[in-house]
Design a protein around this nucleic acid. Structure first.
Lengths: 145, 145
DNA sequence: AGAAAAAAATAGAAGAATTATAATCTTGAA
DNA sequence: TTCAAGATTATAATTCTTCTATTTTTTTCT
């Protein structure tokens, strides 16, 4: 599979250093950063990079289908998922982490598998699971001994 | 079942006219209003009511478990669900309406029925279904004849 | 490679939603 | 009714995001 920079080039996007940095950062990113988190990280390498640039790059990557913006927010801020495919998320009630969940929720759920419900046509399902992540579960059981 | 004002009184909340109006409005509300939508409606009756009062009443009702704030937003604005119980929502791609879905998604879904996934403990599931609502489907089929 | 045109980055301002502050007014209990 | 506690109001402040004008960088064309 081509890497993200090649795909952007194929799509005729100008490859500026800032965009490349943002795209690469996201492609290696395992969590769901906000615009300012990305900005903070990349300022080490690009001290003059402005937050507006980050927002506009994110908008572009979204339009190109390289990333997605989540419906949920982190402390009031939009957060972005490096994986553009429909999938689901766990929000840990303890540590606040957001985890992408790999299982195929809609297709394995008989209710969603039927594609109309209450007379409405269902095209996509995005599920947010609230619970406790494995790390926090581990910490809890360690504490109890 | 007691009505919302009685429940608030039982919980020791000061029953100001503004709060009562907001609580009653929500209890009769069939959609998912934003703070400023509530404010606009109630200004007819309470011309001096400020938006800050609406926000603070919503915060209170949320804490008391009378309503919930949705994860999704309407045009960048937080929206509130008069039904505090976990349930699911359909977002119509055509008209933008948000509909509460009555079926019992988590409990009838085999993946969720097992309550741990990837080592994470699942406590609640909130699904956002994207699709076309029955009204818009009807309009479409009417057009086609 | 070099020049012109197009596009992007920057800094700063502007906008929108929400929260905080201080003063005034209401509520609920004594 | 009086008073303290709490709520509302108006306004200011904050926070996140978008916009604008200017400068800089890319890309294209030769």
């Amino acid at each position: 599979m081509k890497d993200i920079l090649e795909r952007l080039k194929d799509k005729g996007v100008s490859l500026t250093p800032q965009r490349m940095a943002i795209a690469e950062f996201l492609s290696k990113c395992k969590n769901h950063p906000t615009a300012d988190e990305i900005h903070k990280v990349l300022q080490a390498k690009y001290p003059t990079m402005s937050l507006a640039t980050v927002y506009s790059a994110l908008e572009l990557l979204k339009e190109l289908g390289e990333i997605q913006e989540l419906s949920i927010r982190k402390r009031g801020k939009a957060c972005f998922d490096p994986n553009p495919d429909i999938h689901h998320h766990l929000l840990c009630k303890k540590c606040g982490k957001i985890l992408g969940m790999e299982f195929d929720y809609p297709r394995t759920c008989p209710i969603i598998a039927q594609d109309t419900i209450n007379g409405c046509k269902i095209e996509e399902v995005q599920a947010y699971l609230y619970g406790i992540c494995s790390e926090c579960l581990k910490k809890e059981s360690d504490k109890k001994g």
